[in-house]
């Protein structure tokens, strides 16, 4: 338990750091873009919305920075992230709660698939070193050197424009109403194929390589030699002895590479106009919609931290040493 508590404490600190960065950035950087936006919208903002934007972006300069910080936390805890300029006059929190499920679904599923697939391929590549599997490494390296969004562009150009097999944009067919019907779910799956495959193809290489290198190292360990000497089946040695230990760095690495993967996945959403947070962020960039962009950053950070905590639970289950410490 100590292990999990320590991790949870670390994630709380990280969350605090992200929120504080969000608070400080608009105050530290030169220029007052939000003030300009408020001026432009003129009388269309009601006084409540105006007040929350003042709190979030520190436009009220009569207050001390501490008072502003306290107000800022107050607004966040009420779930008040200001108004979006892009989707005026919808509150940022509403925009985010509509797009979050799409991102969680797409990025969550594809990340798990890429992790499992890559780890499994890495196990085989490391175990049968020197076989044809080794020639996969340069190919996957090349694929992982391609930016996610560019692979997405190519996928659209081949599978939607040249051979119109799959839809190029959106989360479901135009004209359908989101509901729990077979038609709608089918349409959602169809629209998720191209972005999903793009994310898996670009992120799988890292897992293959990390796992292969760990397998190579672990295979030379004495306990693997003992397992061989005992005459255990290859399968058992490979998975229960070698892979089980080799996977640990991959899982602790999972936590740290997640932020990077999520960044790439956001871009895939932008390219495919997928109705998740990435596309919302993209629309926010165009309109210099700071409340929206900062809201997206906070929600993504929160999601990454929760996913990290889940990875830690997995680590706990696989590595008894972390349990003994507690």
């Amino acid at each position: 338990m100590t292990f999990l508590l320590r991790r949870a404490a670390f994630y709380l600190v990280t969350l605090w750091a992200a929120i504080t960065a969000n608070f400080l950035l608009p105050r530290l950087l030169p220029g007052d873009p939000v003030q300009a936006m408020i001026t432009k919208l003129g009388g269309r903002l009601n006084s409540d919305a105006m007040a929350s934007l003042y709190i979030l972006f520190g436009l009220d300069e009569k207050k001390s920075i501490w008072a502003q910080y306290v107000d800022y936390w107050g607004a966040l805890l009420r779930g008040d992230l200001g108004l979006s300029f892009t989707f005026f006059p919808t509150p940022v929190a509403d925009v985010l709660s509509q797009s979050l499920p799409w991102t969680l679904g797409l990025v969550g599923v594809t990340t798990v698939i890429a992790f499992l697939l890559g780890t499994l391929m890495g196990v085989y590549a490391g175990w049968k070193r020197g076989s044809w599997m080794d020639s996969l490494i340069p190919v996957t390296t090349f694929l992982s050197s391609i930016p996610y969004f560019w692979l997405g562009l190519i996928a659209i150009s081949v599978f939607s424009v040249t051979f119109p097999l799959l839809p190029a944009s959106g989360g479901y067919a135009a004209g359908l109403v989101p509901e729990w019907s077979g038609e709608f779910i089918g349409s959602v799956l169809e629209h998720a194929v191209l972005p999903g495959v793009t994310i898996v193809v670009s992120s799988v290489a890292g897992w293959i390589l990390g796992m292969r290198n760990m397998m190579v190292t672990v295979t030379a360990e004495d306990y693997v030699l003992v397992a061989r000497a005992k005459g255990l089946s290859q399968r058992r040695i490979m998975f229960a002895y070698a892979a089980r230990n080799a996977v640990l760095p991959s899982i602790s690495g999972f936590a740290l590479s997640l932020g990077f993967i999520v960044g790439g996945a956001l871009l895939v959403e932008m390219v495919f106009s997928y109705p998740g947070l990435g596309y919302v962020l993209f629309q926010g960039i165009g309109a210099k919609d700071y409340p929206l962009m900062q809201g997206v950053f906070l929600v993504i950070t929160l999601a990454v931290l929760v996913a990290n905590l889940l990875a830690d639970v997995g680590y706990l289950l696989l590595d008894p040493r972390t349990r003994r410490e507690g």
Binding site: A18, L29, F260, V262, G263, M293, V296, F297, V304
Partner: peptide
Amino acid sequence: LVIPALPLIIIVASMLP
């Protein structure tokens, strides 16, 4: 490491004049 760098940098870059 844990904080997603991309959205953060996007915010910083777009706030810079």
